[in-house]
């Protein structure tokens, strides 16, 4: 579905992506691993239309992806749930969720909300509460829920486990798996490599802006290189 071909990107004079090749097939969870500053988030931001490319091509369902601004990318079916959650603090939970379905038919809102409440029952209790007053875990759930409201055909999650308690991380990861089983492919960027690889089908390892390793998740979990670099130190 999504295919990055030799993508380059730069922040001013600093080149961050130096030719990323990456592909996501329907129904997959793909984990993107790497150290801080390797270019994981930039890869996602580039695909979402926030950062401009300086070279290469991004294909989406066989056609070049139009990326003039993030909302145009989203309307083609790719949704990024960025790092650090970014809930709208002074909107209520319900308004936060509804903001995700702007420009989609109103008639589908109720069904989508019900689905999200199945995933995250907490949100239903907090419906009229302001987004900024939620706890970290609830905010992450809200962020994922808000992304689901836009009916994505590809969901990109940036660090969903950042700063959360291990129990909640487990919950969120199992929900990610459920979302995937219902048919949405997921591109997952994680520091927490062990958890990510446990639910993913395939994985890419990115080092200083280049993909150095790609394999199925289980063989990545067992590969010595990955163990030493990402599992040994992080855990």
């Amino acid at each position: 579905m999504l295919k990055l071909e030799n993508v380059h990107a730069a922040y001013g004079p600093v080149e961050v992506l130096k030719g990323i090749n990456l592909e996501i097939n329907p129904g997959e969870i793909v984990a993107l691993l790497g150290a801080n500053g390797a270019g994981k988030s930039t890869t996602l931001l580039t695909s979402a239309g926030v950062v401009a490319t300086t070279g290469g091509q991004i294909w989406w369902e066989g056609k070049p992806l139009l990326r003039p601004s993030p909302d145009v990318v989203l309307r083609q079916g790719i949704c990024l749930c960025p790092e650090g959650r970014h809930i709208f603090p002074r909107l209520t939970v319900k308004e936060n969720l509804l903001s995700g379905s702007y420009l989609l038919p109103k008639s589908r809102d109720a069904a989508k909300l019900d689905r999200i409440f199945d995933f995250f029952p907490v949100l239903k209790e907090r419906l009229q509460q302001l987004g900024g007053t939620l706890s970290g875990g609830e905010q992450q759930m809200l962020a994922i829920g808000r992304s689901l409201m836009s009916e994505p055909r590809l969901l990109m999650l940036d660090e969903p486990s950042l700063g959360l308690a291990p129990q909640i991380v487990q919950r969120i990861f199992s929900i990610i798996q459920t979302i995937n089983k219902e048919g949405t492919p997921i591109l997952l960027v994680e520091q927490n490599a062990r958890e990510a690889l446990r639910i993913a089908h395939r994985g890419y390892v990115i080092v200083t802006g280049e993909i150095v390793l790609t394999d199925t998740a289980s063989s990545l979990l067992n590969s010595d290189e990955v163990r030493r670099a990402y599992l040994g130190e992080d855990e």
């Binding site: 490319t53 991004i58 990326r67």
Partner: peptide
Amino acid sequence: PAPAPASGPAPG
């Protein structure tokens, strides 16, 4: 969103 935009990041 659909037609090719007049401006924007060119390499896309």
